[in-house]
């Protein structure tokens, strides 16, 4: 099926989504978000697929939400309902299979937040990260205030979200935003696909359970997570 703003490929148990809106620096518009939601829901029920990769077709990963669509909503109530109950980002947080993202150039706003919804992030040395929302009287709306807290230390979360500090690839690696960085892009691509193949060789049901358990560990209710761990380990 042809998509307007994404490219989708499926090969050897690996799904690959490329953000493809290069005329607008890979910003997320309404259609692109709907396309992503549809593809992700299809991938989640496709038993052949064991791992999902995100990357972009252009030199930047994504410049975030398409601000030209802002202030065009017909009703605040309607817009809140759509944001809350047709939420692509919640679908991604609850996506059961492993997600690997590969980033280069800028990852801004929702683009950055998409990386934080991924399980593994591999970055090119050209990567730069920014959450500019407070500069435009916005707050993150793709889960940033919640997912950053789960991934990196509180102090860095506030540096990035409250002070809108720009982060380069080296700092991203140091504070735990990305798993590793590569100077050579083709080497990075090669590494990501090898990594995905390695993951896809593991039994899917086991992967799904482990991912769920790890995500539970950030949900604060440690006793419930511990009990679930016990139940899951008995069922393996």
């Amino acid at each position: 099926m042809p998509w307007e703003y994404i490219k989708y490929n499926k090969k050897n148990n690996i799904a690959h989504i490329e953000l493809d809106n290069s005329s607008k620096k890979n910003s997320f518009n309404i259609i692109m978000r709907e396309e992503l939601k549809e593809v992700i829901n299809a991938i989640s029920i496709d038993n052949d697929i064991k791992v999902l990769i995100f990357s972009s077709t252009s030199e930047n990963f994504s410049s975030g939400a398409d601000l030209s669509e802002f202030n065009t909503f017909p009703s605040i109530v309607k817009s809140n309902q759509i944001a809350k109950y047709k939420n692509l980002w919640i679908d991604l947080y609850q996506f059961e299979k492993p997600i690997i993202s590969l980033t280069k150039g800028w990852a801004i706003g929702s683009g950055f937040e998409l990386l934080m919804l991924s399980d593994f992030v591999f970055a090119h040395t050209s990567s730069k990260f920014l959450m500019p929302e407070v500069q435009w009287s916005l707050i993150p709306i793709s889960g940033g205030t919640q997912t950053f807290v789960n991934k990196i230390k509180d102090l860095y979360v506030k540096e990035i979200l409250l002070f809108s500090e720009e982060i380069n690839a080296d700092k991203a690696l140091k504070i735990g935003l990305v798993n590793c960085i590569f100077e050579d892009y083709s080497e990075l691509l090669n590494h990501v696909f090898k990594y995905a193949e390695k993951i896809s060789s593991i039994d899917t049901s086991r992967l799904i359970k482990i991912k769920k358990l790890l995500n539970f560990s950030t949900e604060k209710n440690i006793y419930f997570g511990k009990r679930l761990e016990e139940i899951y380990s008995r069922s393996l």
């Binding site: 809140n80 939420n87 993150p140 889960g143 205030t145 919640q146 979360v157 979200l161």
Partner: peptide, 27 residues
Amino acid sequence: TKEAINFGNETPTVQGMKMENDLSSIL
């Protein structure tokens, strides 16, 4: 943003993401 980050420290992630949406709608 500060409120949402601090709330995120205390609450399940999906609930926090919905709260983030509510704060964004107020804005």
